[in-house]
Design a protein around this nucleic acid. Sequence first.
DNA 1: AATTCAGTCAACCGCGATGGT
DNA 2: GACCATCGCGGTTGACTGAAT
Length: 323
Amino acid sequence: MGRSPCCDESGLKKGPWTPEEDEKLIKYIQKHGHGSWRALPKLAGLNRCGKSCRLRWTNYLRPDIKRGKFSQEEEQTILNLHSILGNKWSAIATHLPGRTDNEIKNFWNTHLKKKLIQMGFDPMTHRPRTDIFSTLPHLLALANLIDNPSWEEQAMRHLQAEALQMARLNQYLHTLLHHQPPPFPNTTTTHVPADMSPFNLLSHLETPAAPPSLPATFLQDPLAPFSHLPDLQAPCSVVNDQSSLSKGGGVGHQGSDFGAMENSPGSSSPWLRQNLSPSPPSAAAPLTENSITNTVDACSTSSYGGAQMWSDLLDDPIFHEIA
DNA sequence: AATTCAGTCAACCGCGATGGT
DNA sequence: GACCATCGCGGTTGACTGAAT
């Protein structure tokens, strides 16, 4: 339980590593493996603490480390995983081969976080921000509407776009419900069919077909269909499954992801995903009146994050003003 | 050319978790 | 069960670099 004293020891070198130190560390680990990190520096002839050696190896010297810019795919994967896992950088890193948790964390803090903020999303919850600053885009949009002679048309488009999000959310929930959850004897070792992965399900949301109404039992207790699953609260099984997501979606997640979807701050990732997609919502297939009605009914009563989105929307005076 | 500023990223720090005795 | 050593994680810092002034 106690803290490691290694970094408190005086006389040990700190700061940037020299090429000579790197070489010593690489040669030693290649020959002997790292074994005990605490013992390693002495054995390798380094005047560093074990912690520093471990960090240098795992974040920089490891042979399988991928360098260079993050691809669009990697960026999307990070966004998706962060919406579910939060700041679990090591867990996210297990789904991005060759990337370190430190690298992903830095990329998040320097790029993705800002990107989300600029788009009006809370980077922690992945949901539209409701504070004073985030209403600015709304205000600007409203100003445009007032200035524009065809504001009714724009308002209708705005409403359609919002409703489209709800329709997709509804469809997503429906898809979740209609996949029979497999028996999970053990959450850490069991794989689920590919389609059970929330990310694979997300990919089904391309077409906003008229979503069916949700069963009343679901509206009362959305988690009930999954109540037999062990450990609904813990999203950590994602961490244990090294095979999913980044490897092309061939293998899915474990069942506890449902718990993660429900309990994690980022349960509105479909919403975010749509908003980050290159094509604007209004470019998608038209909504039917029925789908909008169903969506509003479902989302306003379910406990899924979408309900909160909807209630946020209803609480938004600007939304009312436009409507 | 010098200075300032902002962005990036390697490295450090502190804490909790884990495993051994 | 208590204690201790070690590991691993996430937050933060600070050096470095390139762009802007």
